[in-house]
């Protein structure tokens, strides 16, 4: 079995491409050189750091509880990211944690309950990471979309409220539209998979020398899990954010535009 061992020399060689990016930025006066260098150094340090901890956490000698602890930390971190990216919505952290935690929980129960993968640290952490990462993106997208939808269609929502409709009636079609927007990228990705690009897990497996058919099986299982968890989080999030944008007496709260970034 040939495996794609990346030697230190190989890693340094791949940095040549970063040098290309820096050169392009300098020649086109994009002013991104420092950002590129910072991103490169930071990602390397982060990955080395995470790799070192992960090696310890998912070591078969260590109790599985360490891996679960890692999963919980990922959920918490994802919740904080969601909160930061949608500052207009009150009390979003608990909702974000609930949505992401629920999706991760449900999918992990399915994966390990049905024996799709064996329950070990080396399966739990990366699988949970993929669910949580994708759910986090879907959550941010759904929350942002709901806020923008209500901001754009405030007149329509208030006209419905003024007719005596409840906030859930007045917001229904806008939430539906936001949810559709939030789910579309994942559905499109699922449709185009294999034709346009090979997803990360499969690429990784093939690079690591696993038989492509086996890689496809793993990838398909992961993809359906991601689709499921993204749909779950986006739905929980859309409905939850929809509720939080109204007061209990059916008024749409103020949604000031965040200050323009220069």
């Amino acid at each position: 079995m040939t495996t794609a061992d990346v030697t230190t020399v190989g890693l340094i060689a791949s940095l040549l491409l970063v040098a290309v990016a820096i050169t392009l930025s300098a020649s086109q006066r994009l002013g991104l050189e420092r950002d590129i260098i910072w991103a490169t150094v930071r990602s390397l340090v982060q990955l080395l750091f995470v790799g070192a901890i992960l090696a310890f956490v998912i070591d078969p000698e260590q109790p599985l509880i360490l891996s679960w602890g890692w999963v919980i930390a990922m959920v918490a971190f994802a919740g904080v990211v969601v909160r930061r990216r949608t500052p207009e919505i009150p009390a979003l952290l608990p909702l974000g944690l609930l949505a992401i935690g629920a999706a991760a929980g449900v999918t992990l129960v399915v994966v390990f309950g049905l024996g799709v993968f064996p329950l070990e640290g080396r399966t739990l952490v990366p699988l949970a990471g993929m669910m949580i990462g994708n759910s986090m993106n879907a959550t941010v997208l759904a929350a942002r979309r709901v806020v923008d939808e209500f901001r754009e269609h405030r007149a329509e929502v208030e006209a419905r409220l003024a007719l005596g409709q409840s906030s859930s009636q007045a917001s229904r079609r806008h939430l539906r539209s936001a949810l559709r927007t939030a789910l579309t990228p994942q559905i499109e990705t699922t449709k185009a998979v294999g034709l346009v690009f090979l997803p990360g897990a499969m690429t990784g497996l093939i690079l690591a020398g696993v038989d492509p058919i086996e890689a496809v099986r793993v990838q398909a299982a992961i993809m359906y899990l991601i689709l499921g968890s993204v749909a779950t989080t986006a739905t929980v999030m859309t409905l939850g954010v929809g509720k939080r944008l109204f007061t209990t007496d059916h008024r749409l709260i103020d949604l000031p535009r965040p200050a323009e970034r220069s």
């Binding site: 007149a155 208030e158 006209a159 007719l163 007496d249 059916h250």
Partner: peptide, 19 residues
């Protein structure tokens, strides 16, 4: 009740809102 109030007090806005 706020929903009852809004049905008893109709409102027409500045821009006509077409659903």
């Amino acid at each position: 009740g706020v929903l009852q109030l809004r049905r008893a007090v109709g409102m027409v806005f500045q821009e006509p809102v077409r659903f």
